[in-house]
């Protein structure tokens, strides 16, 4: 295919980095090459015979390429590959391991919103959305992708430092029998039992229960 003489060191650590199924190919520059290296990228669907070039990632000098669109069907699995060029020389094609968007993506923490009464707090949890091609595209909650998705919720009494943990499947939780006029901080994590996936905990959302009017 008219390839040049390929003695350039290879791109290193070629891998997919995926969050909420936004699937981006990343790699490190070949050892000792400094500036001026250009790259091209191709990908393939596992079990299908051909490699497909990614035009937007041809002759690029950055070391990443967004393949979310090309790998959006999470019923398929994929490989991607990168080749480096410098001063008329090229490297070998360097491939990823087999990428399964369903099991190999990372999940962001859920969105948490809290409100309170005198003796209870209400927590509403929202799972992140799957990556979508454009802002106008249809929003797909990761809840639809992972039907077994659950939430682990932590509730901290800021005064007593006492903490409770809850595991819930639906997206609302009411914590009753709390102390009036007290600050509580809530943080939540997504947990999928199979395939085994879990997000980090969200940042804390604090709210104070209303003061006891009768006191």
């Amino acid at each position: 295919s008219g390839e040049l003489y390929c003695s350039l060191p290879n791109p290193r650590n070629v891998r997919f980095e995926s969050v909420n199924m936004k699937n981006v190919l990343h790699w490190s520059a070949p050892e000792g090459t400094g500036d001026g290296v250009l790259y091209k990228v191709k990908y393939s669907v596992y079990g299908v015979g051909k490699w497909i070039r990614k035009p937007e990632c041809r002759n690029i000098n950055r070391t990443w390429c967004d393949l979310s669109s090309e790998t959006s069907d999470y019923e398929e699995q994929y490989y991607a590959s990168v080749k480096a060029f410098l001063n008329g020389m090229c490297s070998d094609w360097m491939e990823t391991t087999r990428f399964n968007p369903l099991t190999d993506t990372k999940i962001d923490p859920p969105m948490v919103s809290v409100s309170s009464t005198e003796t209870s707090i209400s927590i509403i949890l929202t799972a992140p959305e799957k990556w979508k091609r454009s802002p106008e595209g249809e929003s797909v909650s990761l809840l639809r992708v992972y039907p077994g998705l659950q939430y682990n919720v932590s509730v901290l009494n800021k005064k007593t430092k006492k903490r409770w943990f809850f595991s819930v499947s639906n997206n609302t939780l009411v914590v009753p029998w709390l102390e009036p006029g007290t600050a509580y901080c809530v943080s939540a994590q997504i947990y999928v039992t199979t395939p085994l996936l879990h997000s980090g905990f969200s940042k804390e959302h604090c709210v104070a229960t209303l003061k006891d009017k009768t006191a």
């Binding site: 596992y46 079990g47 015979g49 051909k50 398929e76 490989y79 087999r98 039992t193 085994l196």
Partner: peptide, 27 residues
């Protein structure tokens, strides 16, 4: 869950032993 975690532990090793990317047994 047990099957999944067992497979996750060996997936990279086993798939690396399979050089044929153009054919799938199941798909």
């Amino acid at each position: 869950t047990e099957i999944r975690s067992g497979f996750t532990a060996i997936k990279a090793n086993i798939q690396a032993r399979d050089p044929i990317k153009t054919l799938s047994i199941l798909s």
